[in-house]
Computed example of a mutant assay.
Amino acid sequence: MRVRLAEPGDVDRLLELMRGLARFEEYIDDFAVTRESVLEQGFGDGRLFTAFVAEQDDDLVGMAVVYTIPWTYTLRPKVVLKELFVVEGARNLGAGKALMAAVVSHARSIDAAELIWTVMEGNRAAEGFYRSLGASPDLKWNNWSLSLPAQAPRDR
């Protein structure tokens, strides 16, 4: 198992992994990510996210997608793990742990004060996995959301 930064040549398989997570978490009907959006927002100087991929036998079997909140109350960045997904056939082979180790290393490299993420309600396997890494739920905060309609292209 090898973990590395995703490269533009990985975009098609990375998009498949993102779709796999969307199916698992049941938001595939709202999934709007395209090959072009991954290339535009995940690579280059103005990228909005960083992706790590787990590779086994020349196939990408997992991904971790993170973004950074550059300024917080600690005056240090905060890294947000937005997506972690390993294909079913590669689970329990160390891909998830290797991806998380890469994410932690990345967070430390930018002197982040914290690494945060959310876990889908009822995903006990994920909770157990994260606990095995030494993580614990943040009982101080709960997530809220407000859905906003898309703006017409001319309004953006």
Rank of each mutant, 00 (worst) to 15 (best):
A22K: 07
A22D: 02
A22I: 08
A22L: 02
A22H: 05
A22N: 04
R23K: 02
R23M: 00
R23S: 00
R23T: 00
F24G: 06
F24P: 00
F24L: 09
F24H: 03
F24D: 01
E25Y: 00
E25I: 00
E25F: 00
E26F: 02
E26K: 15
E26S: 10
E26T: 08
E26M: 11
E26N: 12
Y27M: 03
Y27T: 01
I28L: 12
D29S: 12
D29M: 02
D29Y: 09
D30Y: 04
D30L: 11
D30F: 07
F31L: 08
F31A: 09
A32N: 01
A32G: 11
A32L: 08
V33P: 05
V33H: 02
V33Q: 08
V33W: 06
T34R: 13
T34V: 14
T34K: 14
T34C: 13
R35C: 11
R35I: 07
R35E: 04
R35L: 07
R35W: 02
E36M: 01
E36G: 06
E36I: 09
E36D: 09
S37E: 06
S37W: 10
S37K: 09
S37M: 07
S37D: 06
S37R: 10
V38I: 15
V38E: 11
V38C: 13
L39T: 04
L39W: 01
L39R: 00
E40Q: 15
E40P: 12
Q41P: 09
Q41C: 14
Q41H: 13
Q41V: 06
Q41A: 12
G42I: 04
G42L: 09
G42A: 10
G42Q: 07
G42P: 04
G42S: 05
G42Y: 05
G42V: 03
F43A: 10
F43K: 13
F43S: 10
F43H: 11
F43N: 13
F43M: 14
F43G: 14
G44N: 12
G44I: 03
G44W: 10
D45M: 02
D45S: 11
D45R: 10
D45L: 08
D45I: 04
D45N: 12
D45W: 06
G46C: 01
G46S: 04
G46T: 05
G46M: 02
R47H: 15
R47Q: 12
R47G: 09
L48C: 14
L48K: 15
L48A: 15
L48Q: 15
F49D: 09
F49Y: 12
F49E: 03
F49K: 06
F49H: 07
F49S: 12
T50I: 07
T50V: 13
T50G: 03
T50C: 05
A51L: 08
A51T: 11
A51R: 03
A51M: 03
A51C: 15
A51P: 12
A51W: 02
A51K: 02
F52A: 05
F52T: 08
F52R: 05
F52H: 11
V53P: 05
V53C: 03
V53S: 02
A54F: 08
A54Q: 08
E55Y: 00
E55G: 04
E55N: 00
E55M: 01
E55H: 00
